[in-house]
Design a protein around this nucleic acid. Structure first.
Length: 463
RNA sequence: UCCCCAGUAGCUCAGUUGGUUAGAGCAUCUGACUGUUAAUCAGAGGGUCGUUGGUUCGAGUCCAACCUGGGGAGCCA
């Protein structure tokens, strides 16, 4: 008796027709009547279900036909061509062995549930169609990203999750401490004595691996980091979480044009990868979650990305025949509504906005010759808005020091970052992409809480 | 953090101008059923109407505060 995965049956079932097979999985639904019954079996290896026929003469069919959803079973039988529409093949059961019983109390029913309700049972939701597809795709997308960089000779760097510095001087941090909160140690001046923290100083969860990955860029030329990052912002939106994953590549001997090309290539590559390897899931999303999904993904694959300077973008927005809730003015950051107008209505295509005023961007971004703007880029895509943000990095030591001074940061915290500029600190550039934002883009899911297995948001750390 | 909306059965919702014993579909249970596709048909059980207080002869319905969830904004990835 051959054990098979449902995935392999859907890949090529022809050679197995007529054979005796054994399949193990969980019951999704059961339909039973006087003369025949059916089980929809999902074994987790494939998005779709295997239809199992319970023939009239099957011993114990009444009990089998009454098994509740999510019962774990092993079924032996013969694989046959299906006489009815709906599936090309089915398993004609001869033995149904219950491996682990379930109960009629199982909360997932054969009906639509709201995502809000399913979030309250995050430990069970991967057993339903939508979340089965989301989290299979999440895994695949992560692989596609690694594959893209590996093919191009990038070194994957594990940047630290515990850090002592706040990378960009922006964003609230989660403090990491072993100090006794009820009885904090004090120094002579009465301040908290962080030297007694296990790490020896005040420490935090990382908000970005960029500064650390830059150091490896100066050794390996092409590097990337891909891991969890943390923000303690009290953001209550469908696009923010306290814990999320970020992809941050960094390339040496390169400037903004190469950076933009890399971003475009990466996005097209990973979309193309899931398009090719997750058609069952994408078809499902296109049907039930976001009707324009496949068209949007295919458009992205064919599009040549547009590029516009921040200054020109502001001019376009000022001339737009459209009333914005927030006014447009040079020197102010673009609002969500502005970004959406540019990518969805004006360009109708993914578009890079480049050369932002230095005041609204981070200290490490490379100063342009006009000394008003920095060599930065944001990639805006229809449906999501900003999906990637990046820049050329300031490699000139004196300019970088001046920017650190201007932004009121403590130079001594960045001694190692400044060191890079002293020893062969060549020009380089990189970007960051929120992994969940990318996943939302390829699934059409519109809440970040529904693309993270156990989402962490303000007031939420259940499970 | 700010603005808006919502909270009624296990789930998704209806509930008129404040008025008798609060309804439906799905789920559950019982039975029926010639191959079903979220199967179908018949019947049954299931409720402190988010919480607290208030107005009223009378509150699911009106008012206030709080709690929870959602949408939008800001911040950003």
């Amino acid at each position: 008796m051959k054990d098979v995965d449902v995935k392999d049956l859907f890949a090529d079932h022809e050679p197995l027709l007529g054979q005796k097979l054994s399949v193990s999985g969980w019951i999704r639904t059961v339909r039973n009547s006087k003369n025949v019954g059916f089980i929809e079996l999902n074994d987790g290896t494939y998005f779709g279900n295997l239809q199992v026929v319970l023939p009239g003469e099957l011993p114990g069919r009444d009990e089998i036909g009454a098994l509740p959803i999510s019962t774990g079973v092993t079924i032996e039988g013969e694989l046959v061509a299906s006489p009815k529409e709906g599936q090309p093949f089915e398993l004609r059961a001869e033995v149904v062995r219950v491996e682990a019983p379930s109960s009629s109390e199982f909360p997932l029913q054969k009906k639509r549930h709201t995502f809000e309700y399913l979030r309250t049972i995050a430990h069970l939701r991967p057993r339903g169609n939508t979340f089965s597809a989301v989290f299979r795709l999440r895994s695949l997308l992560a692989f596609a990203i690694h594959e893209f960089f590996r093919e191009r000779g990038f070194v994957y760097v594990h940047t630290p999750i515990l850090t002592a510095s706040d990378c960009e001087g922006s964003g609230e941090l989660f403090r990491v401490s072993t100090l006794d909160m009820e009885n904090l140690p004090r120094d002579e001046a009465g301040a908290v004595d962080y030297a007694q923290n296990l790490l020896g100083k005040d420490a935090y969860l990382t908000v970005s691996g960029q500064l650390e990955v830059e150091t490896y860029c100066m050794a390996f030329k092409r590097v990337y980091t891909f891991g969890p990052t943390f923000r303690a912002e009290n953001s209550n939106t469908s696009r923010h979480a306290c814990e999320f994953w970020m992809i941050e590549p960094e390339i040496a001997f390169a400037g903004l044009p190469e950076d933009m090309q890399l971003a475009e290539d990466m996005l097209k590559s990973i979309v193309g990868y899931v398009r090719e390897h997750a058609s069952a899931e994408l078809d499902f999303f296109n049907r039930f979650i976001d009707k324009g999904l496949l068209q949007r993904l295919d458009t992205l694959l064919d599009a040549s990305f547009e590029c516009v300077t921040y200054t020109d973008a502001v001019a376009i927005l000022e001339k737009a025949d459209r009333k914005f809730e927030f006014p447009v003015a040079w020197g102010k950051d673009l609002q969500s509504e502005h970004e959406r107008y540019l990518t969805e209505e004006y360009f109708k295509s993914p578009v890079f906005v480049v050369d932002y005023p230095k005041e609204i961007k981070a200290f490490y971004m490379r100063m342009n010759d006009d000394e008003r703007t920095v060599s930065a880029m944001d990639l805006l895509v229809p449906g999501v808005g900003e999906i990637i943000g990046g820049s050329a990095r300031e490699e000139r030591l004196d300019v970088l020091q001046q920017r650190i001074d201007e932004t009121g940061m403590d130079m001594s915290d960045y001694w190692w970052y400044l060191d890079l500029r002293k020893y062969g600190g060549v020009r380089h550039a990189g970007f960051g992409m929120g992994f969940e934002r990318a996943l939302m883009y390829v699934t059409g899911m519109d809440n970040i809480r529904d693309v993270i297995p156990f989402p962490r948001t303000p007031q939420h750390v259940e499970f």
